[in-house]
């Protein structure tokens, strides 16, 4: 069994840094969540020195809410005459992991978990198992969510998971490199009827 190391953890990339990872000309095409997710991923790749991980995984509780809510609002106004191809294309939960792959031309394993509060742990668990078994050697595991103004006022409709604007990216490698941050020891997911799912991420600070 391979050991699994975390070689970069990136979150809350300040806006001033965006230009360094994403040229403004290219950034224009992307929504807020997409930009934030992309620069967070690109920074993790830069810090770890791994530009082409074997896998890209994302965890998201609610997916691309801005685009989804826009479609719902338009359907309310225009009924079924609505036509919003771009919003629809970018409304699926896997938009972010795909965008990172498209932007970096990465043809590796690519998947997305959308399992409420433990979506990131589900993604981490997938990467961890594959790395332990030697199926892959490196993986970028991200967590991305956005909360729209609409949702804040309507938690009862969209659920009480209450995600926040959040982007985080971890680079995992079976090779500790020079400056590993943690060794990932285990990921456990616990489901109990009637309770929120729990996840335990066991890691050793190095």
């Amino acid at each position: 069994m391979n050991r699994v190391f975390v070689t970069a953890v990136v979150k809350n990339v300040p806006l001033e840094e965006y230009g360094r990872y994403l040229p403004p000309m290219k950034a224009r095409r992307f929504g807020k969540l997409q930009k934030r997710a992309l620069v967070t991923a690109l920074k993790a790749m830069e810090i770890s020195g791994i530009a082409q991980p074997d896998a890209i995984l994302n965890g998201t509780a609610m997916g691309c809410m801005e685009n989804s809510v826009q479609i719902l609002e338009s359907m309310l106004k225009e009924g079924e005459a609505v036509s919003m191809p771009t919003c629809f294309m970018q409304s699926t939960h896997n938009t972010v992991a795909s965008l990172i792959a498209i932007y970096t031309q990465n043809h590796g394993y690519n998947t997305t978990y959308a399992h409420r509060g433990i979506s990131f742990a589900c993604a981490l668990h997938d990467a961890f198992m594959q790395m332990r078994m030697g199926r892959i050697r490196t993986a970028l595991v991200c967590e991305n969510d956005e909360i729209t103004r609409y949702q804040e006022n309507n938690l009862q409709l969209f659920g009480k998971i209450a995600p926040e604007d959040k982007s985080e990216a971890w680079m995992l490698s079976v090779d500790p490199g020079e400056h590993p941050l943690y060794e990932l020891l285990d990921v456990r997911i616990i489901h109990q009827k009637g309770a929120e799912d729990r996840a335990v991420i066991l890691k050793n600070l190095l």
């Binding site: 509780a61 609610m62 978990y113 959308a114 409420r116």
Partner: peptide, 23 residues
């Protein structure tokens, strides 16, 4: 949300102590 549907399906049966949703 996706996860709520997975858990709703799972808990109709009560057979599961691990649930996850792929999207």
């Amino acid at each position: 949300d996706c996860g709520a549907n997975t858990n709703g399906i799972a808990d109709y049966f009560g057979c599961f102590d691990y649930t996850s949703t792929v999207s």
